[in-house]
């Protein structure tokens, strides 16, 4: 199976470990993945706060580049790990399909750069690909280092599940649970799986943003979680990088590692910490069961 890949800005900077671990896991599973050449920003929320129309055009250029990169008749899905990019691209796809007036404007704009958009590319999240294209059976067959005894809280966040995705349930998501369970982990019963982490409010309106993140962390901790698994670079950043600040703010001593689900999968596949960007985590991965690096 082969896919096109849209990393987005975060996966090249603060979320590098997500890219590293995802690519390693994909190659272990024999999935071919090609980065879209000369991709631009998806036009996510901060950009959309200034111009929605231009945000649609940014996403449309990405689709057009992806289409050009493939043979005319070929169809390849675009894998998008970042939740905000996943939403932005899906939103554009949806709006261009439903609104002819908008579609005409965007076509005209793309035309100025000799680009064409037909909408034949689907946007897929790695969780979707791993569950539905690869399958749990294949994934568990590669298990060499079971995550036994590790209590994991699976955090999906918001934009991955709402409002355009159709691969999981937005209230009771389970695709990440299933993957990590198949690799030996125990999944913590934690009802905040898809509750908002505060997004960029942690940096802009900090007392509110940190409070939202703290609620997630503390609830997970109270339920005996060893590691929080995430699928979004901003969720990972908020829950991990601001953890010491939350402790100061709320006079607490939480020390929960927050890893990308792809890092945990890689560990179970026996990949090296370097391949998975483990050294980029602020809080070292240790579990109650005493594994080093789990």
């Amino acid at each position: 199976m082969s896919y096109l890949y849209f990393p987005g800005c975060s996966l090249k900077s603060s979320g590098r470990a997500y890219e590293e671990s995802m690519l390693s896991v994909f190659s272990t599973l024999g999935l071919k993945i090609n980065e879209i050449e000369d991709w631009n920003c998806c036009g996510a929320t901060a950009y959309m706060s200034i111009s929605e129309l231009k945000a649609f055009a940014l996403s449309a250029r990405i689709f057009a580049l992806a289409e050009r990169q493939m043979q005319a008749s070929d169809r390849a899905d675009i894998v998008v790990p970042c939740a905000a990019c996943y939403l932005g691209l899906n939103k554009t796809r949806h709006y261009l399909a439903e609104h002819p007036k908008l579609r005409r404007k965007i076509y005209k704009a793309l035309n100025a750069a000799n680009l064409k958009y037909t909408g034949r590319m689907q946007v897929r999240h790695p969780l979707d690909v791993l569950n539905n294209d690869v399958g749990i059976e294949k994934i568990s067959s590669l298990l060499v280092n079971p995550l036994e005894g590790v209590q994991i809280a699976c955090y999906y966040g918001c934009q991955l599940l709402r409002p355009y995705s159709d691969f999981d349930d937005q209230h009771e998501p389970s695709t990440m649970d299933r993957l990590l369970k198949a690799l030996g982990a125990e999944i913590v019963d934690w009802p905040l799986k898809s509750r908002c982490c505060g997004g960029s409010l942690t940096g802009t309106v900090q007392d509110v943003g940190l409070r939202l993140s703290y609620i997630l962390l503390k609830e997970a901790k109270k339920r005996g979680c060893d590691v929080i698994a995430t699928a979004c670079p901003l969720c990972q950043f908020n829950l991990e990088c601001y953890q010491s600040r939350m402790n100061r703010y709320y006079k607490d001593k939480i020390n929960v590692p927050v890893a990308y689900f792809t890092q945990l999968m890689g560990i179970a596949f026996g990949l090296s910490p370097q391949q998975l960007g483990i050294q980029r985590l602020f809080i070292p991965l240790k579990s109650g069961a005493g594994h080093v690096c789990l």
Partner: peptide
């Protein structure tokens, strides 16, 4: 960080400025 074909993107966005 930057893309290679900045002019291409500028052309696309310019059309929409008028549209807007």
């Amino acid at each position: 960080e930057s893309i290679v074909h900045k002019g291409e993107l500028k052309n696309i966005l310019k059309v929409l400025e008028k549209e807007h």
